[in-house]
């Protein structure tokens, strides 16, 4: 048996773990494994050929680039939002705090058409930007805007609890030792926020990499220019190029797993730095 467990007076270990493992295997593990098997059918050369076509490379570049940029923007604004929401009192604070989760709750298709309409040349924001010659909808910039939206809550929500638990005494101690407000922030507060900031950044980046629904409406989806990887997978699937789609998906999955690993390490670091006295 896989699980070597400590004896307990409570019943139900076998059935519950058994069901959980079966369900997990059927829904998640076996289908995911199938993806790698299918992409392996191409052989090493075929695999690399499938993932290194100019169209695929352009999609990878766009997806990773825009996701990274969106995560960076959210790292900055997420920190700002978390700080403002936990440290300051102002009217509407609670509403805004609740609103931060909107990108989690709003279906991506809804977000997609809303953003596309807002940033279209005749949209509320797009028409303003159009006057200064800035085009967002139907360009790679549009991809970036959609990704900023959907990955917005991660950094806020990872930093907030840490900031809430930060004892005011350490800032007072810093001031009593002669540090000015900026020094206190830079040397005492920020180092504590850094691990959750990085965790939130990685979560936002991971989420942006896989995003599909909110992007396709605003991106314009021109192959080689504004086509993201998930869309490319979709298109290849519609053309019955299962193995190619699987190969590209495999690359994305590996990237996600690496990020997941990184996130776990970061979370342990957060707990260590922030946890025990």
């Amino acid at each position: 048996m896989l699980a070597l467990r400590r004896p307990s007076v409570l019943p139900g270990f076998g059935p519950t773990l058994g069901f959980a493992l079966l369900y997990l295997s059927l829904i998640v593990l076996i289908p995911l494994a199938g993806l790698f098997v299918r992409s392996a059918e191409l052989g090493v050369e075929g695999f690399f050929a499938a993932v290194s076509t100019p169209r695929a490379l352009a999609a990878f570049r766009l997806t990773f680039g825009a996701s990274l940029l969106a995560a960076l923007v959210n790292a900055f604004f997420g920190l700002l939002l978390a700080w403002v929401l936990t440290r300051y009192r102002f009217p509407g604070r609670r509403v805004i705090d609740g609103l931060v989760d909107l990108p989690f709750a709003l279906p991506t298709a809804v977000a997609g058409i809303a953003l596309a309409t807002l940033y279209a040349p005749n949209g509320w924001i797009g028409s303003v930007l159009d006057k200064v010659g800035l085009k967002i909808a139907y360009t790679p910039t549009g991809v970036f805007v959609a990704l900023v939206f959907i990955s917005l809550p991660f950094v806020v929500r990872t930093i907030q609890p840490v900031l809430q638990d930060l004892e005011p005494e350490i800032e007072e101690a810093s001031a009593s030792l002669g540090a000015d407000r900026w020094q206190t922030w830079r040397f005492v507060v920020f180092p504590v926020l850094l691990p959750p900031l990085l965790t939130g950044f990685a979560l936002a980046f991971a989420r942006a990499l896989g995003e599909y629904g909110s992007v396709i409406f605003i991106a314009g989806n021109l192959p080689g220019l504004s086509e993201i990887v998930p869309l490319l997978i979709f298109i290849q699937l519609e053309q019955y190029q299962y193995a190619n789609a699987a190969a590209i998906a495999a690359v994305m999955l590996v990237a996600s797993f690496i990020l997941l690993l990184l996130i776990n390490v970061l979370q342990r670091w957060t707990a260590k730095r922030h946890g025990d006295e």
């Binding site: 289908p31 299918r38 896989g210 997978i233 979709f234 998906a249 997941l260």
Partner: peptide, 17 residues
Amino acid sequence: LPFSVSPVIAGLIYTLM
């Protein structure tokens, strides 16, 4: 794990099956 998998890939794996 499913949180780190792109929705399109989620659809893909069942299509492959």
